[in-house]
Amino acid sequence: MPETAVRELTFAEAIREALAEELRRDPRVVVLGEDVAEAGTPFKVLSGLVEEFGTTRIIDTPISEAGFTGLAVGAAMTGMRPIVDIMFGDFLTLVMDQMVNQAAKIHYMSGGALQVPMVLRTTMGATRRSAAQHSQSLHAWVSHVPGLKVVLPSTPYDAKGLLKSAIRDQNPVVFFEDKMMYRLKGPVPLEEYTIPLGVADIKRPGTDITIVATSSMVQTAMAAAELLEQVGISAEVVDPRTTSPLDRDTLVDSVKKTSRAIVVDEGHERYGVTAEIAAVIADGAFYHLDAPVKRLGAMDVPVPFSPPLEDVTVPTENTIFDLARTLCGKA
């Protein structure tokens, strides 16, 4: 197959393909979650997997997030590589002891004797009119915890390559999929590939300002960069791809070049991913900055149901555009 053999896949298809390839490659991999088998999850991301791999590999569980996540921790410690499906990221609250006190710490607490090679896949992202308990982006919570790795893919290509690396990783990895991107299409090579965890990607080169963005905010930042180009501002869009580990060097190097930075992320702004990344940039590129590092996160409010209310709580291409113009002195 030539290296240029590329198809368009949706974000959901890319994830499904990564799962299928790893299920084929490694018999220790199993998928556990609510309605993951015949239903293929409410988002249909896993549709078709049970037909190929059967119910011994694609395993429906009770509505029991702490129970099946805890079970996955024990299975991972004893020779398996489970992938648990937590339907909505909001339900992370139900598995926090299993992930934070158990999975994240077992390798360290045992002095390296035990390992927990598991993946927790879950969703994030607002504007689906799902209200406050089905719309949160809680990746900052787990990014805070040493021992966990946290992945936030922004394209079908990244989703596939990062998920394959997450499944092969020897550590517990939390993998966030913005549910608003499941139908997003993008090029995905036919050939096998993986993307290492901890390597940022410059999604669009630029010279005037760096926009660091995560997950679906990368797509929003790319749209803002198009608008900025029309007013003569060259924006560089940098996607960390993983918040833990965080590729500090790529972020700092970009801002050293552009001298300005905006950090965009869909988690709540206070104490969030934007704060951490802004601090990394301020620390690493201080003498190169021509303006304060600015942050755009989700508004510090529970996600409202009513569409006109919900829409103002998240960063948009226009809010990024306006802030970038101001920072560049071209407002």
Partner: peptide
């Protein structure tokens, strides 16, 4: 959870 997972 760990014990049950080991049994699983």
């Amino acid at each position: 959870g760990v014990a049950t997972g080991a049994a699983f």
